[in-house]
């Protein structure tokens, strides 16, 4: 751990907030993507049950 001096709070919270936001964005993106994929598969299966 590097010595952050008296501004440790500022630096760490900046990294914290940014990674949280990026993580949330990625998680929501992936979750919505999965749901869309599943919904499409369900509909296509209904369309031609054999395939």
């Amino acid at each position: 751990m590097p010595d952050l001096g008296k501004y440790a709070d500022a630096v760490l919270s900046a990294y914290g907030v940014s990674s949280l936001l990026l993580l949330l964005l990625v998680v929501f993106t992936l979750r919505k993507g999965r749901a869309a994929r599943a919904a499409l598969e369900a509909v296509e299966k209904r369309k031609n049950p054999s395939g």
């Binding site: 952050l4 501004y7 440790a8 500022a10 630096v11 990294y15």
Partner: peptide, 8 residues
């Protein structure tokens, strides 16, 4: 001047 805040 900025000390560790430069990492932001």
């Amino acid at each position: 001047k900025f000390e560790s805040t430069v990492k932001i």
